[in-house]
């Protein structure tokens, strides 16, 4: 068969597949081309989604396989390269339309929140505790150092940082103005934007830098731990402990845990590189990426919650300090319970 005859004989099928692919990817011309090839179908108004899907599901696979066959034939017979190119492109887009997953986003998110996320964390519990240690041990260490040698705080923070901190948490400072609800509302909004951007970026850094054999995660977690320890101990030393802790306790439940989780995701990548097991390093890495990115998704959601709490609740004075400590404590219990009890139990 000559190329031209081949084209004449099969061109209609190719155009039909093209039209179906266009309909799948939902481009503008989809309806029109659909009509062209299915004139027997009822009018646009009469043709509902399910009917369209039926046509799509019954015709598409067989048509696509036929075009695959045409491509193989055209190659085998050394038809002109323009023709092979055309079939090649058609097969590629058919392949993409056929095999790309159609996701049910909302359902997946709900499933993830109530089940997959906490289960996933429990699965890698040891890594979680390791990441926690990387954050909290340096914090404790630095806290003790600053407690016994207050000037140590300047080894991490410069004078301006420290003065700003003292200013913020002193009696009647930025955290505790005269007005009833703490900061003005629009100020809260600005801080929300700041917290979202700043905290989630830190989380992403902790995760991404894990690919450097885990060293980046090690660095960022410990650094954040050191700073947190230094700041806490310094403020305790200054006598602003109560104001500081009533500010951080509520959002800390989500924020600190989420940072640990981001670090944990980074360590998953690092571990894949350090001990890939029976896989090649690149494969081990790609394999570890799936759980890692799911953890990062979850942690991002937690950081968003933390940012809202930090912006609208933590600085407010709706409750007396005792009340804020109780609410904050409850949030810690909530987070812990979520990770301990939600989702599937381990098989008995």
């Amino acid at each position: 068969m000559t190329p031209n005859e081949f084209t004449r004989r099969h061109e209609q099928e190719w155009e039909q597949l093209e039209a179906l692919i266009a309909a799948r990817s939902g481009r503008g011309s989809a309806k029109r081309s659909h009509r062209k090839y299915y004139p027997e179908m009822p009018d646009d108004s009469g043709m509902n989604r399910t009917e369209e899907q039926t046509v799509d599901q019954t015709v598409f696979p067989s048509l696509y396989r036929r075009v695959c066959l045409h491509l193989a034939l055209a190659r085998e017979r050394h038809y002109p390269s323009a023709l092979i190119d055309r079939l090649d492109r058609l097969t590629l887009s058919g392949h993409q339309a056929f095999y790309s997953a159609r996701s049910r986003l909302l359902h997946n998110i709900a499933q993830f929140a109530v089940h997959d996320f906490p289960t996933l964390i429990r699965e890698h519990a040891r890594l979680f505790w390791f990441a926690s240690a990387l954050l909290y041990l340096p914090a404790l260490l630095m806290g003790l150092l600053v407690h016994f040698q207050p000037e140590m705080v300047y080894s991490l923070l410069n004078h301006d940082n420290v003065r700003e901190l003292e200013e913020m948490y002193r009696a009647g400072g930025a955290i505790e103005p005269e007005t009833g609800s703490g900061r003005a509302a629009d100020q809260n909004f600005k801080m929300l934007g700041f917290y979202v951007r700043n905290n989630i970026s830190i989380g992403f850094q902790c995760f991404a830098s894990g690919i450097l054999f885990g060293l980046g995660t090690l660095f960022f977690l410990s650094l954040n731990g050191l700073i947190f320890g230094a700041v806490s101990a310094h403020l305790i030393h200054q006598g602003s402990a109560e104001r500081f802790f009533q500010f951080v306790i509520a959002h800390g439940a989500f924020e600190l845990t989420a940072i640990v989780l981001c670090g944990m995701a980074g360590l998953l990548l690092g571990r894949a590189l350090i001990s890939p097991g029976r896989r090649r390093r690149s494969e081990a890495l790609a394999h570890a990426a799936n759980p890692a990115v799911r953890i990062v998704f979850g942690a991002t959601a937690m950081l968003l919650i933390a940012a809202f709490i930090e912006a609208f609740w933590s600085s407010g004075t709706y409750l007396p300090p005792t009340g804020k400590f109780i609410v904050g404590g409850l949030l810690w219990v909530l987070v812990a319970a979520y990770f301990l009890f939600m989702g599937a139990r381990r098989a008995p």
Partner: peptide, 18 residues
Amino acid sequence: FGNFGLGIWLIGIFLLEW
């Protein structure tokens, strides 16, 4: 839009960056 606008902007910038 003052501080309110800045808050929205910062969130937008975060989304734009990542």
